[in-house]
Design a protein around this nucleic acid. Sequence first.
DNA 1: CTTGGAAAGTCAACAAGGCTGACGTAACTT
DNA 2: AAGTTACGTCAGCCTTGTTGACTTTCCAAG
Lengths: 166, 166
Amino acid sequence: MSEPASGGESLLFLTDEQLRKGIEAMFFAYRGFTADPDRILDGMDYGRAHHRAIHFIHRSPGTTVNNLLSILGVTKQSLNRVLRTLIDDGLVESRVGREDKRERHLFLTARGAELERELSDAQRARMRAAYRAAGPVAVQGFRQVLEAMMDPDQRRQYQTLKEGGA
Amino acid sequence: MSEPASGGESLLFLTDEQLRKGIEAMFFAYRGFTADPDRILDGMDYGRAHHRAIHFIHRSPGTTVNNLLSILGVTKQSLNRVLRTLIDDGLVESRVGREDKRERHLFLTARGAELERELSDAQRARMRAAYRAAGPVAVQGFRQVLEAMMDPDQRRQYQTLKEGGA
DNA sequence: CTTGGAAAGTCAACAAGGCTGACGTAACTT
DNA sequence: AAGTTACGTCAGCCTTGTTGACTTTCCAAG
């Protein structure tokens, strides 16, 4: 594997060292990314799994359990436990499907929406600060690299969500 | 279709919608980021925690337990469980400090280095593909945003590592 | 209409990997 | 000599992932 050192105008020659820095950047940044919601959830009886469920129910109200399952990439048993506590605590409402009674459609209640806002306000604040600090060009690149890093299935999910919400 | 002129150099007006996309990009990308090593570890008796320990021991051979603790951000009990299995299995060597005999300096054994290579080859391959697909400008932005997203302490850790390895 | 399979959800049990608290030992520092 | 630091360990807890087994519901083929 001998790369022709200079790839035209720019280097697409990536050393292990450069890649390692990228890997570590992901590791440390993800910690920051989850830190604020984690802090809020800590003390309540909820964790990161609850946050994720709440996020995607907020994002796609009326989504089915199965749908949520494939987005979150966990087993239905795992999701169910989280969902049950959220339903019992009155943060999420589960409505039996009108067409297919096997399905449950999920919605945030007023209280659920309130918690969602609190969590995502914190997370957005950090994201906004990072975006501002790095600037619009960097943000563009950030999104491009992240997208390229996803598995094809994940990318499809992400893009569906991306469009659906506009 | 009502994109508020998010043109290149313009103002940094960030809608909740734009920020939400960034948040979801992080979520999905991180899954991809960990997918390959997770797949390799699955079936062995190790998990993501072992991978992290191995990564940073490889990266800073001779590092102390305390040092590793602060990088990984877990408790010593948690790290100890992981470290013990790695030492027992002969992937990591723990040497009593020469200057300060309280300290233990950690090194990968040949077998440890072998597993490290296998794991990081997989992870680097994905990172390399993503970098190539997105291009050098995007990579630059990617790193900038991630860095801005870290907590100050994490950023310090990251930058120390960044320099140390060059 | 019935029957069989697929899909949605639930219950139970287990594992990984976080956490806290308490305690011990050796070695360094004051 | 006393106090602090680095490390290891035991015990127990929590969250969140897993599999396996089960019910209910729906749908389609016979």
